[in-house]
Design a protein around this nucleic acid. Structure first.
Lengths: 249, 249
DNA sequence: CGGCATATTGAAAACTATCAACGGCAGTGG
DNA sequence: CCACTGCCGTTGATAGTTTTCAATATGCCG
């Protein structure tokens, strides 16, 4: 379950998502500092947990591959999904203050996580001001996405904003990929957006009928970005101009 | 409009909200570092802007007194409120990555803002690891609140969660105050929550009728916290146990 | 193949937004 | 000082959207 980074030949220098992760804008010598900080990779199979609510927080994680969902259980015993995370995202940031994880984190696909021991990470930030700046930068982007992820009012707007958000983040990661793989189910999307899953499905059907998107199975392709943006509420031009880095929805 | 901190006798050591701001958990000698970093206070009258969308980001601000709203204009020209901020909150964090402000920030009441010049602030964080840790801590709390502020599904849940969120934050600031002053209008609450203002009003009327809250003018008192929590979705016990510090909704 | 989770669709019920009207209150200007 | 104006809060009636309930289809996994 835990493997050495070395055995998997994982290195911040040749990482496919370093441009959205810690290593962006960091000098070669400082990247070595990251490489020595991050010794291990945790591998977690689909549907397994990275951590549970209230587990003591010892590590943050940077997603090397795969995706996961962050969720809690409300007072009625129902799951509520707080966020989805993708390669390059840092997970655990919102739990630092509490020193224990505030939510459950479950793999949606098989996950490879670069392990960031929190205390050493803070020491590294202190030694290397550029890494500290990079962490502030990534934190800032996460705040920006968290604040604006849920702004749409109607179910249509919410679903369109969700698709734009995901598409935007995927574009940062792989600008050439037209097809987006959605690792979460429609039920999970509906849960995240706070609307009934039948409604999510109907909005998807509607967007398909208007030839704005195509979907088969889990793959999504956006045919008409302009019209999707008209139907959503957010102006994503600001977001994409920020930087090629994203931490969360 | 800009005054020296000295002339107003403002000092992190005797600040009324230092326990939710930067100075918490910081040694006396490091607090002097904060005091020398923060030379000025910006005073802004009610309904005036702290900054506008796309202004270059040179400063963060710590709210010394007053409150403000963060908002944008959507593609239809309508205002959408992203967040509310109160004394002790740091504003501007989500704009660091973009190096320009991502939203408008308007005073809801007369504001006094401690000015944190960003570059010097980053240098201070580098010099003083405990201050860096404190900033990470406050960032973490902001993420936590941003993620969980909007989780309710129905209008009732959303309004109740909003009240719990505000009450929680006010309790951190003044544990003895039973009455909460809501500096924003019902219209602004409805805008923030993404529901019609008539609906917000009806929920308030309903909560009053059930003797869960009392409201006159802008003051709110929660009579039955337990029932309010039942009606909301979030479990705020986790939040309040985190730490006596909050950065945003 | 069987069993289970997810996706899809229709119809009815519930909820929320919209439209409209009115009262209160503060600020403005004559 | 008082009328006037505009913003905010309040309430009812109606229209529109979304949820809920129900039934069926599809796809995945052992």
């Amino acid at each position: 379950m835990i493997k050495s980074r070395e055995s998997l030949a994982i290195d911040c220098n040749n990482c496919l998502v370093k441009h959205v992760c810690l290593a962006q804008d960091i000098s070669i010598s400082d990247i070595e500092e990251l490489n020595s900080l991050i010794q291990n990779v945790r591998c977690i199979e689909k549907k397994n947990h990275v951590y549970h609510l209230h587990d003591p927080l010892k590590n943050l994680y940077a997603i090397y591959s795969g995706s996961c969902k962050e969720y809690g259980i409300d007072s009625n015993g129902n799951e509520f999904i707080v966020n989805f995370y993708f390669p390059g995202d840092i997970i655990g940031l919102e739990s630092i203050a509490a020193q224990k994880y505030l939510y459950y984190m479950m793999a949606l696909e098989d996950l490879q996580l670069c392990v960031l021991p929190l205390n050493n990470f803070l020491k590294t930030m202190h030694r290397k001001p550029n890494i500290m700046r990079r962490v502030m930068h990534l934190s800032s982007i996460k705040m920006q996405y968290d604040q604006s992820a849920r702004l749409g009012i109607t179910a249509h707007e919410r679903v369109c904003d969700f698709l734009l958000n995901i598409a935007n983040r995927m574009y940062q990661r792989k600008p050439d990929e037209k097809e987006i793989c959605l690792p979460m189910s429609q039920i999970e999307i509906s849960n995240f957006l706070g609307i009934a899953y039948e409604t999510v499905n109907r909005v998807f059907q509607n967007l398909k009928k208007k030839n704005i998107i195509v979907m088969n199975n889990k793959t999504l392709e956006i045919l008409d970005l302009g019209r999707l943006e008209e139907l959503g509420r957010l102006d994503y031009s600001v977001m994409s101009s920020v930087s090629p880095a994203v931490t969360s929805i």
